[in-house]
Design a protein around this nucleic acid. Structure first.
Lengths: 255, 255
DNA sequence: TCGAATTTGTGCGTATGTATC
DNA sequence: GGATACATACGCACAAATTCG
């Protein structure tokens, strides 16, 4: 049985004291030299032990200053949930409920459906669609990206062909579709966890391969079953929780 | 302006060639010594560059053998969705629909609710609960972990107090609750993307910090609104997609 | 079977740039 | 502004694992 390497032993020891609460967020940790003395190894071993904990997110290092216990910041999670009859932007409304200011940038252009989008919208590859790219910001920092596709065949003759222009801008897909007489009900969402691509990391201000929540959302016309909008939504994993289902109302039981 | 450190330059160079496709999954990469020669630095710098890429999940290292480009393995996504009136294990049923064999291991024990579980179950901290740990396997490889908590106050007098023992084992929470006359409806699920902890990575056979889909699920008694079960579910991000909502039935529109 | 060559993993000492007082 | 403490990066030496003849 091989003994674990000393730098792992030191890291494990410190990890235990941090998660156990003995060392509190903000506490200054021993310098790498001091750590080496305590365990009878060279400073570089202490440095490597710290590098493990930094990678795990338990410790932050400040060049020339020292290592510090990092706050277990579960930085207020943003909550994403479906809002059945919203008449405001679901995103802005959600942010407001959480005491933040939600804004977004967008860009629309016509495009043709590739194979994947065509499949999701039940149209033919090459059919015209309106594609809109979104960047969502909370308190001016980007937290969510989205790309939306709508078949021109659905909205082309209406004044909502551009999702973010005219009197019906910024109210969300469900409300916009109601304008042209389409009731969409709840969307179907396919949820995945994966690492951020480089482009996503760049846009969201996170490191590549950091976990993101990725949702493929599709709205259907409830009357006919026809897909009317589909979107790829990418959210910072450390900032979002997506909630599905509702807590029942009546709570008349005894605790 | 400080130049980036040589080990970061090397890592960035290799990263570009990997994501660009010049280096393909499975390819053997230069040894750290060779890498050092190529860039005119010592082997330790090459080793450090590789450690960065290993941490990002782009490269795997095999002691004594070399460094290899890691496969972007997108192996058959498993689909997780709610099954309203299943009378079989939802997990096994889902796996079977996808042509795989789903099995699981479990271990139950009584415990007391900590603050978080107590909050989710609307009971008091310290109240007794039945805790069950699950490891789910598909074709003998672990793909999902779960920890479930049920208040003893709900199941304690019944023959389903042990989730995985007796005639009602392995049928899922909803079906088990029906046995004692509780209709639970759809659960509430809070979905997050985060990096795997060390323990999770170990159990799931992935690297630490690899993305996992993490779901906090709670079932409620529909009649009273009382929570009757809550669970933490951890799934390999590269193997699972969770689906919410249903595609409408009728598709009588013209393409 | 075995041993030599190759390769990664780990520890150490030192030089350098940074932060703090 | 200077002195000191500190983290970071690098080159080197040795151990452990793998491969191959």
């Amino acid at each position: 049985m091989a003994d674990p390497a000393p730098y792992l032993v030191i890291a494990e020891d410190l990890r235990g004291r941090i998660v156990g609460g003995e060392l509190e967020p903000g506490d200054r940790l021993p310098s790498v030299a001091e750590l080496g003395r305590q365990y009878g190894v060279s400073p570089s071993v202490g440095a490597r032990a710290y590098s493990v904990l930094v990678q795990e997110g338990l410790v932050i290092s400040r060049h020339g200053a020292g290592h510090y216990v990092r706050g277990q910041e579960t930085p207020e999670l943003l909550v994403r949930r479906h809002r059945p009859r919203s008449e405001d932007s679901p995103f802005a409304q959600g942010a407001a409920e959480q005491g933040a200011v939600g804004t977004w940038r967008h860009e629309s252009a016509t495009a043709v459906a590739d194979a994947q989008v065509a499949d999701r919208l039940s149209i033919r590859e090459g059919d015209p669609v309106m594609r809109t790219e979104y960047v969502y910001l909370v308190d001016d920092s980007p937290v969510q990206l989205a790309t939306s596709w709508e078949p021109i065949a659905v909205t082309g003759q209406s004044m909502i062909v551009l999702p973010e222009a005219g009197p019906y801008a910024g109210i969300g897909v469900a409300a916009r579709m109601r304008v042209i007489g389409i009731d969409v009900g709840e969307p179907v969402e396919r949820v995945r966890a994966r690492g951020a691509t480089r482009a996503e990391a760049q846009a969201l201000g996170i490191t590549p391969a950091a976990p993101v929540l990725f949702i493929e959302r599709t709205y259907y016309d409830q009357a006919t079953g026809r897909p009317v909008e589909t979107a790829d939504i990418t959210m910072r994993g450390d900032r979002w929780v997506a909630v599905y289902g509702q807590v029942p109302e009546g709570r008349d039981f005894q605790v």
